[in-house]
């Protein structure tokens, strides 16, 4: 208890940010270096922290196999949106923070030798929200998968559709789902990996359309956010509601995969589906 308090105090001070992280699930204070060594998985409760897109790629793809696609796509501000801040400013800040043009990276890679088109969300870019660039990149990567007769894998981590692009964001759900219908028709596999958190329009389109759907342990996955549901039904939510384990129990996903086994499992799945 005292040690815990001491660590808590460490975190509260400014040095905390650089050296220590707090687990979103069990609140444990973890030394950042240790967390990184552990693939950003809490050593105490095995909660899987959101990780930057580049790290995800490094974890799952064969070394030097990833060739990025459509890097040049960048967002516009189609409805000149402004809430408390201008969308244009939010975009600029997110681009500075992440070094990316938008919230999604796509490319071709191999996983234990099996080729696939891969798409990864960057949650740090406006909460991994689905806007026009993300939708376009997904449509292109899926169409390219069809051209090259290989499968597709998408790692989701997103708060949902990007409100700042209005109706055009909603339409990305239809656009990406339509693209996946062609992959399906061509009998090419699509694997969806849901990571913490995956919500809203992302879950309700390509997120839940995988031939195989995997989720990381304890990932929050749903359509409506838990706060909205709680306010609507005016009652407490069941224990573990909208967590990966809960979805598995309700038949919504195929299985839960620990990060350290992710690459090997994806490699096996691709090999089994290809040959």
């Amino acid at each position: 208890m005292t040690w815990f308090k001491k660590k808590e105090a460490l975190l509260d001070e400014k040095a905390g940010d650089a050296l220590w992280s707090k687990c979103n699930a069990c609140q444990e204070i973890i030394y950042k270096k240790e967390l990184e060594r552990n693939l950003h998985v809490c050593p105490k409760c095995s909660y899987h922290f959101p990780i930057p897109a580049q790290k995800r790629l490094a974890i799952v793809t064969d070394e030097d196999s990833f060739e990025e696609l459509d890097r040049v796509l960048s967002p516009l501000d189609p409805i000149s949106f402004r809430d408390l801040k201008r969308y244009a400013d939010r975009l600029h800040e997110a681009q500075q923070k992440t070094g990316l043009k938008d919230a999604f990276i796509t490319g071709r890679a191999t996983i234990h030798g099996s080729p696939a088109m891969i798409g990864v969300f960057e949650f740090n870019f406006l909460g991994g929200s689905l806007g026009s660039v993300v939708g376009e990149k997904i449509a292109r990567m899926v169409e390219k998968a069809v051209d090259e007769k290989i499968g597709a894998i998408i790692f989701s981590s997103s708060g949902g559709a990007r409100m700042q692009e209005g109706i055009l964001s909603l339409m990305q759900m239809a656009k990406t789902s339509a693209a996946l219908s062609i992959l399906k028709k061509e009998r090419l596999p699509y694997i969806s990996v849901l990571t913490d958190p995956t919500l809203g329009g992302v879950t309700a389109s390509f997120g839940m359309l995988g031939d195989i759907i995997l989720a990381e342990p304890r990932a929050m996955i749903g359509f409506a956010g838990p706060r909205v549901i709680k306010e609507t039904i005016k009652a407490d939510l069941p224990a573990g509601f909208q967590r990966a384990e809960y979805l598995l129990q309700h038949g919504m996903i195929d299985f839960i995969i620990e990060r350290r086994k992710l690459k090997a499992t994806l490699g096996k799945l691709l090999a089994l589906l290809y040959h």
Partner: peptide, 26 residues
């Protein structure tokens, strides 16, 4: 919009919406 309730989530409203989007395209 979709109903934000426990049962709706448990029975997969995200999956139901997604499936309609994909199937309607075909």
């Amino acid at each position: 919009g979709a109903y934000p309730g426990v049962g709706a989530e448990e029975r997969g409203q995200a999956e139901a919406i997604a499936r309609n989007l994909m199937e309607m395209a075909t």
